[in-house]
Design a protein around this nucleic acid. Sequence first.
DNA 1: TGAACTTATAAGTAAACACTTATATAATGT
DNA 2: ACATTATATAAGTGTTTACTTATAAGTTCA
Lengths: 109, 109
Amino acid sequence: MDYIQMESYLKAIGDHNRMLILKYLMTESLCICEFTELIDMTQPAISQHMRKLKQAELVTEEKRGRWTIWSLNIRHPLYPMLIHLLSLLPEPERTVATLVAEGKKVNCE
Amino acid sequence: MDYIQMESYLKAIGDHNRMLILKYLMTESLCICEFTELIDMTQPAISQHMRKLKQAELVTEEKRGRWTIWSLNIRHPLYPMLIHLLSLLPEPERTVATLVAEGKKVNCE
DNA sequence: TGAACTTATAAGTAAACACTTATATAATGT
DNA sequence: ACATTATATAAGTGTTTACTTATAAGTTCA
């Protein structure tokens, strides 16, 4: 891996909101409308963060009906390092469990 | 470690020139005038990169006469991760050995 | 077909970033 | 004291970043 490549990976990871997104994805795959309930950010802002993460190949997307389901890319060269890095960060205040309790968890089967 | 703190660490690391600097420091401590011989960058540019790395506590400085000797901070919370990350990057073209061969290695005892 | 819903994109903006050149500060050696 | 050497800082610049609001595009379902 060259220096420019590594730089682009680290820049994609190195934002507190994107790390929060990645932390959520460590537990389970989510769509953008769920992130808008979990994180205090507008839908376009989240969408643009997902695009950045996708460009760095840190996440993958799968279209299901009107939803786009985002997942961590476990084949990324930095995946093991990313998991370790995220493990150093605290669990977010709002959990997916609260989403479920509020009936806001998306079920796109 | 909180998200903002991690962001500031990753932003300090996530620049190709600073990673090159850190890669050199993995082998041995160096001063800025040596970096100017190793890396195609002006002295103020290097000095400003060192300041960023110092603010993130990734490096430490020691004044010796007119020189400032820079070293990796092995007590940094991300030090183990940093070493692993740098090990994924190729050795720089210009080595410290070439500096010695050219009589440009600083001896500040 | 059309309303509701989910997501993506476009355009604009303020702040941060990585440099540049010029200059200041500080230590060394004659 | 003075020239040399090493480093830091200041000021300016073009680019990138992370957002905002507005809107477009695509899917679902009555």
